[in-house]
């Protein structure tokens, strides 16, 4: 992997053009830009995209924000669609119908709806077959495109439009699905979980490994949504920092089955620090709801211990 030089990196031509219609302050496009920066300049790419915020905003006819070839097919099938593209590449190369000295990389982007839920079968199939591609989930923890409905990626107790907190409800009742582990269990080449850090080094390294490791790879990137999480747009980097420092969103990778922590907080912060700035958890801070925060903390701890164990720590 190449050494990380921010200036060099940022001097590359942006592969996501401005003018897309994502909300001001959207985390998804920050993530997309970071992943695409890991592409080597001489390489071409085909981007597949599941239906979702990113898709309806980034290719609104006739405006495409993508500098590379791009295909959106439907909500639930970015994995299968891109496996068709990748297979076409393989066979056209074999048949001598594409120039030998030009190289393509294949990257799919889907939100947690298109990845964890409706697109899960298609993703699982593509990963199991081992296509040489990367599937990137921009995980903002709910169906934001349709108006903040819960998904299987939504954390417990989050107030969403289908799990509203109310007199008889504390928000979502289930813990979030651990998709990165599930995909790692597909025996794929590479899985990375990351989010934004100030120098983006962690995400960059993982994206580069995912793109340039032969075989199927999966990246799970937490990309906060100011609208759905209810925090002021400018606070995104702080939200990400707190997610990592509280161990709510651990940074790890699984390379050919080998688990590794890529960041460990020096002092694990209490989960309240991550929950408090977000409107979707406001009800947890009402007097009498302390036990809910305790439960949340217990779940974070349990998962963190589990991860440490997997990473042989």
């Amino acid at each position: 992997m190449s050494s990380y030089n921010v200036k060099e990196m940022m001097s590359k031509k942006d592969r996501l053009a401005p003018g897309h219609r994502m909300c001001a302050g959207c985390g998804a496009t920050i993530g997309v830009r970071a992943v695409l920066r890991a592409l080597h300049e001489e390489d071409h790419a085909v981007i597949a995209n599941a239906t979702g915020c990113l898709e309806v905003s980034s290719f609104m006819y006739p405006y495409t924000a993508w500098e590379d070839s791009y295909i959106h097919n439907a909500f639930e099938n970015a994995g299968a669609t891109l496996s068709g593209v990748e297979t076409a590449y393989k066979v056209l190369k074999k048949k001598g119908k594409l120039p030998e000295d030009e190289h393509f990389k294949f990257i799919a982007f889907g939100g947690d709806g298109g990845t964890y839920d409706i697109g899960f079968q298609s993703l699982s199939g593509a990963m199991e077959r081992g296509h040489d591609m990367v599937y990137v989930c921009y995980d903002n923890g709910a169906y934001m495109n349709t108006g903040i409905q819960r998904s299987s990626a939504t954390p417990r107790f989050a107030d969403t439009t289908t799990t509203p907190a109310g007199k008889c409800s504390d928000g979502k009742m289930q813990n979030r699905k651990d998709l990165a582990s599930i995909i790692a269990d597909h025996d794929v080449a590479y899985v990375g979980q990351s989010t934004f850090t100030l120098n983006f080094n962690d995400l960059h390294q993982k994206a580069e490994k995912a793109i340039y490791t032969e075989g199927a790879s999966f990246l799970n990137i937490m990309t906060p949504c100011p609208r759905g999480w209810r925090y002021p747009t400018e606070d995104i980097m702080e939200i990400c920092r707190l997610a990592v420092e509280t161990c709510y969103w651990p940074m790890f990778e699984v390379e050919h089955g080998k688990w590794r922590l890529t960041y460990e907080p020096k002092k694990k912060l209490p989960i309240e620090d991550f929950l408090r700035p977000q409107g979707r958890f406001k009800h947890l801070f009402k007097p009498g709801n302390e036990h809910l925060i305790e439960q949340f903390q217990a779940e974070v701890d349990r998962r963190w211990e589990d991860l440490l164990y997997k990473c042989n720590r």
């Binding site: 071409h44 309806v56 290719f59 006819y61 495409t64 500098e67 590379d68 070839s69 791009y70 295909i71």
Partner: peptide, 8 residues
């Protein structure tokens, strides 16, 4: 590059 499957 081409772009396929827009929102319209």
């Amino acid at each position: 590059p081409i772009a396929v499957g827009p929102y319209s």
